[in-house]
């Protein structure tokens, strides 16, 4: 049993999500997210050749421009603007969160085994494992982080997982739907970025664990 290029790329993306859970530096997290998205666009591009669907090339290009370059640069700009550069994490320490993600990757292997098989190109246990693992790592990231910016990053990792699952396990979505999803993500990140600014201005911190306290 050998892995092909798409499977290697998607597993590398899942590994980058695991490393994200272990790092407390926001700039490191953003760089890893950018790398991960770039890997996904590479998977999309190589799938375009295998399935002979030319619109995947445009989707790959849009992912590189919007998600691998645009969103990370925007998040980095917010990070510099607010002056927060690391996330201490909440109840679960980041190293332990990373170990949890590794174990969840093992769990997602078993989940991927129980998926129905298909002869579709790119539809393999390795891709499904990577997609579910990305989703669960994003979930862990959102659950264990304290800073609002990290929550956005965790949400983006979940989105990447869903995208990879849809890409490899189904016959793909039409170009219009893909572009719509991309635009939604972009607008979502923009709005939550602005919200982070607002939170920073009214609370003087972006610690989500302290947002339950009511203030005048």
């Amino acid at each position: 049993m050998n892995l092909d290029l798409i499977e290697l790329v998607s597993i590398a993306a899942a590994l980058s999500a695991i490393l994200m859970a272990g790092s407390t530096h926001l700039s490191m997290n953003i760089a890893l997210y950018s790398l991960q998205t770039f890997l996904l666009s590479l998977a999309t591009y190589s799938l375009a050749g295998l399935r002979a669907e030319s619109h995947f090339i445009w989707v790959a290009l849009a992912i590189v421009v919007l998600k691998a370059l645009g969103i990370p640069l925007f998040l980095h700009w917010i990070m510099v603007k607010i002056g927060v550069n690391s996330d201490p994490g909440t109840t679960l320490a980041p190293p332990l969160a990373m170990h949890c993600c590794v174990l969840l990757m093992g769990l997602s292997y078993f989940l991927a085994q129980s998926l129905p098989s298909s002869s579709l190109e790119g539809h393999s246990w390795a891709n499904a494992t990577a997609a579910i693992s990305l989703l669960l790592s994003g979930l862990i990231l959102m659950l264990t982080r304290r800073i609002a910016l990290s929550q956005i990053i965790g949400f983006l990792v979940i989105e990447n997982g869903i995208y990879l699952f849809a890409l490899t396990q189904t016959s793909g979505m039409p170009l219009v739907v893909e572009m719509g999803v991309l635009l939604d993500v972009l607008v979502g990140v923009m709005i939550s970025g602005l919200l982070v600014f607002r939170i920073q201005r009214s609370f003087e911190h972006i610690d989500v664990t302290q947002l339950t306290e009511l203030r005048d």
Binding site: I18, L19, G22, P94, P95, L96, M98, H99, V102
Partner: peptide, 8 residues
């Protein structure tokens, strides 16, 4: 934190 990477 560093050793956690080795463990990972």
């Amino acid at each position: 934190d560093f050793i956690a990477y080795a463990l990972t």
